[in-house]
Structures are given as structure tokens and as C-alpha cells.
Design a binder for these strands. Structure first.
Lengths: 163, 163
DNA sequence: TGATATTTTGATAATGATTTTCAATATCAA
DNA sequence: TTGATATTGAAAATCATTATCAAAATATCA
């Protein structure tokens, strides 16, 4: 997969901040861009460790932070403790619907909702910066189970259940 | 302030769950209901400690969890690490606008947005459960400062700046 | 009431994700 | 190259939140 455009963005960002290019940084970016799901720092660490056996934990966190700063990555914090990261490679702005039973994640885009959010900002005299919208519900696959009386089961610490 | 109705809800919830009534639990509820802002567990702890010098940390967390379960309290997780709690005493459902400069918080209600969210749930075959909407922007008070070139200053760990 | 069983409590240790520290190594500019 | 500076991995530190546990409080029922 060609990720040159993103690599260039990252390189330029590093240069602009007078930071240094490094094997790990670029390597992590490539690996990250080629995985199309929302990863925790730990998941990315495990995957990247295969290619870079010496890779350290902290480097993953440090690099993800840089990627967020230059707009190639977005940090998501759902209802559980750990942060997840999604890259913006071939994705436009979107919000998320999360199934509270199986953890399934759907990306949604809706112009109306974006417009309305802008209006709310204006109405309260705020200069819009960003927003976060998460919809929690039960997906079709899980609905039968839910209606069989498991609906009240609580996911541990509000974490999207399952995988 | 009369919080009898809420106290009754809590008592009945405890009874239904075969839990015991206790001085601390009711005391915390009263203190919590009489503060009209979004508290962290630690803030509530410090405040309640004045009335109950022996109060322990864990009890505050435990009680807040119970209050959430019985619907008197809602846990909020903004972009920083710690959870905040708001009671639903005299408040209907609302979302939040947060100023990323000063941390000011505004509660917003908008029927259109609620409707649209329902539609999104339906469109993707989800059975709605709850949602979370947070709008991050810069409030009027902070706009002059922002436009003076401080706009790029980063709040620590994404936490709403200031107090 | 009082005895007993069960919960709750506070203090403290444990947890788990993320950050910091620091000495060794890599990168860059001249 | 060289010297200055940034990055790295490992390990320790942080910070919010939870679990543990013995003592105290509360409920049950004889």
C-alpha cells in the first residue's frame, strides 16, 4: 500500500518541529497505516514488535502522540480506560456507533448532525474546534441475545464487551 | 434544599438490591446533590471530608457508582484522565460544550440533535441505548486571547485548561 | 432487646494505562 | 568526522481507580 503522502506529511512535520527522522517513527507510521482498525497503544506495540524486536513501549506512545499532533492520527477514548488510535488514511471525519454487547464499531458520517453541532457552537458563542460523538447501542446481531434477558448484563468498567 | 425525592430513590434502590443504608451513603448523596457542578471523585471526597473527617476514598467511589446505577448520577469522561460526576437533580438530559482554554462547561439541549442521533442508530440497525456528545471549542471570554496567538498552546493531556 | 450474620467502612496495597527518567545510541549540521 | 542534540528502550514513577481485609456498623430474627 502506498503511504508516501502520509510519510511526507510526517517527515515535514518532524522537520518543522526540528525533530529527527528515525527508523522507528517511520516504521510505526507504515505499520499503523496498514491496519484498518482502532488499535490500542499496546496492540500496535505487539504488532510492531514483530518487525522491530527491540522496540520499546514508550516509543509507541511517543510516536502516536506525534502522529496525532500532525493530524495523521486521532486518539479515541471510549467508555473504557484505554485509549484507541485510528489513522485518517482514506477516512474522512466520522463519528462512532458502538455496540455495548459485542464491541462492534461502525463509523458514521452525517452532514445534518455536523451542521447542527456547528449551530450549537454558534448559539452558545463558542468558536468550534472539534467534537466527539459516540452512540452506544445494541447491534442487530446482539439484539436477540439482549431480548432474551441478557440486556442488563454489565460490561466490565463500561468497556465495549467482547472483541 | 429538599432532596427527599432523591433520597427516597436511593433508599429504595439500596433496599431492592438488599444493600444497607448507611450514614456515609446518604450523607454523600446530600452533599453531592447540593453542589451544582461536575465534580471529580477526589473533589467530592475533599468536600465531604469536612463533614465526615473519617471518610475514606474508596467509599466515595463506591457510593458514586451506586448513584450512577440508580440513575441519580452520571459519570462523564472528557478528554482528560479523570472521571467527573454530575447529578441529575433538576437537570434533564443534556450534552456538553467545553472551552478548551478555560475549561468552562455549558450544558446544551437540542431536540434536533437528539432526533438525528436516533435516526443514525436506526439507520445502522442499532437499538439505541445512550450517547455521548461533547463539543470542544473556545468560549467568548477566551477568544481574544486565542486570537492573540495563544491559540496553539496545548492543554496538558487534553485536559480542559484552567479551573 | 440481643445475638448473629452480613455489609460497609477506611486504610492500605494493588492495578493498569500512560509518562518520565536516564544512560546509551542514533541523527543531523557543519 | 565531530560535536550537539534528539531518540531510544528499560525500568521506575505517576495517577486515577479498585481490590483486600480487619474492624465497625447495620440488619435479621429469636
Amino acid at each position: 500500500m502506498s503511504t508516501e503522502k502520509e510519510e511526507k506529511i510526517f517527515e515535514e512535520f518532524l522537520a518543522a518541529k526540528k525533530l529527527k527522522h528515525s527508523e522507528q517513527r517511520l516504521g510505526l507510521l507504515k505499520i499503523f497505516l496498514n491496519i484498518d482498525r482502532h488499535l490500542t497503544a499496546d496492540e500496535l506495540f505487539r504488532i510492531a514488535k514483530k518487525k522491530y524486536p527491540d522496540l520499546g513501549f514508550a516509543t509507541v506512545y511517543r510516536t502516536l502522540k506525534l502522529l496525532c499532533e500532525c493530524g495523521l492520527c486521532r486518539e479515541l477514548k471510549f467508555e473504557d480506560a484505554k485509549a484507541r488510535y485510528e489513522h485518517l488514511y482514506g477516512h474522512k471525519h466520522h463519528d462512532h456507533i458502538i455496540c455495548i454487547k459485542c464491541g462492534r464499531l461502525v463509523e458514521v458520517v452525517d452532514a445534518n448532525i455536523e451542521d447542527l453541532q456547528e449551530k450549537l457552537f454558534k448559539r452558545h458563542g463558542f468558536h468550534p474546534q472539534r467534537h466527539r460523538l459516540e452512540l452506544y447501542g445494541v447491534c442487530t446481531k446482539c439484539l436477540p441475545a439482549a431480548s432474551l434477558g441478557f440486556a442488563e448484563r454489565r460490561a466490565p468498567r463500561g468497556e465495549p464487551t467482547g472483541k
